[in-house]
């Protein structure tokens, strides 16, 4: 029974296979059919000769055909035959493999863009354009705010710079910063100890009047609160409580052309010092260094009055 059914199945299958490939107007199908007919003829001729009975052939067929398929497969695969047909088929399959690999790779590579339709591409392009415009405007905004921030930071830096400068200038005045610039060095040699505090104060006032900006006597910085006292025992003078002995050496930053005549005027500082057997020498310099520092006293009572 099963032997009867199997050939029927095969026939159905063949019948189903024919129309399927038939309407496809495919040369293969037509030739297949022709060749198939030929194969059937050649296949059946020996069978007919063998068994003689059609029924016997039909009963043997289902057993033989699949095994024939296998043997054909093996025969085609194993002893490799080099023929023109094989080479042409190999060439075609080579092209197929190549195209297959290229297609698989490009599909993996370029996501969906590579095989996308035109309208999809247009849509994607539009979206990208929109996105680019949004990003462009965002970039403009960010650049503006960056410029603002840079501006304000520059202003802050400028203000800081000015404040620092101001602080340095005030520090020179207050004696907390070293000062340098053109000026004079006035040296008072007083071998007999005749120079007293009041004479030093006169000298200092004269220098201040002539526009001295920073003054140091020996190693004491002269500031607004500097005071002079005579040493009670022996010679010498105390400046800001520090004992200073001769020769007194004034280092003064200021205009040398103003300072020197101010000291040298008749009846001025130099004259009166010479009257006390002290010798004053003035050296003008393009650059003097006032490097002594005064210790600022914190304000105890006064505070800045609001403007």
């Amino acid at each position: 029974m099963s032997e009867e059914r199997e050939p029927r199945e095969r026939e159905e299958e063949a019948a189903a296979g024919e129309p399927e490939s038939g309407p496809g107007a495919e040369p293969e199908a037509g030739a297949e059919a022709v060749a198939g007919a030929g194969a059937e003829e050649t296949g059946q001729a020996p069978r007919g000769g063998e068994g003689g009975a059609v029924a016997a052939a039909a009963s043997r067929e289902p057993v033989r055909l699949p095994s024939e398929g296998r043997t054909r497969l093996k025969a085609a695969l194993w002893p490799p035959r080099v023929s023109r047909g094989q080479l042409v088929v190999a060439l075609l399959l080579f092209a197929l493999g190549l195209a297959l690999a290229i297609q698989v790779r490009s599909t993996n590579d370029h996501s969906e863009l590579r095989g996308a339709r035109q309208e999809d591409l247009v849509r994607i392009l539009d979206e990208l354009d929109d996105k680019q415009q949004r990003l462009q405007s965002e970039k403009t905004q960010l650049e503006q705010s960056l410029a603002q921030l840079e501006n304000s930071s520059n202003q802050a830096k400028e203000a800081q710079e000015q404040t620092r400068k101001k602080a340095a200038e005030l520090g020179v005045l207050a004696g907390t910063e070293k000062a340098t610039g053109p000026g004079i060095v006035l040296t008072i040699d007083d071998p007999q100890g005749q120079v007293k505090a009041d004479m030093l104060l006169d000298t200092l006032q004269e220098l201040r009047a002539a526009g001295a900006e920073a003054i140091q006597i020996n190693d004491v910085r002269v500031v607004a609160g500097t005071y002079f006292t005579d040493n009670s025992s022996g010679g010498g003078v105390r400046i800001d409580g520090k004992s200073v002995s001769q020769p007194f050496r004034f280092t003064v930053v200021g205009n040398p052309q103003d300072l020197t005549p101010a000291l040298n005027i008749p009846g001025g500082v130099v004259r009166s010092l010479e009257n006390h057997q002290a010798r004053a020498t003035i050296v003008q310099q393009q650059k003097v260094l006032v490097d002594a520092l005064a210790t600022p006293k914190p304000l105890q009572y006064g505070k800045p009055a609001a403007k």
């Binding site: 035959r81 088929v89 190999a90 080579f94 197929l96 493999g97 690999a101």
Partner: peptide, 12 residues
């Protein structure tokens, strides 16, 4: 066999 080889070589 040669045909199968052709396919494999093509893919490679």
């Amino acid at each position: 066999m040669i045909a199968v080889l052709g396919l494999v070589i093509g893919v490679i």
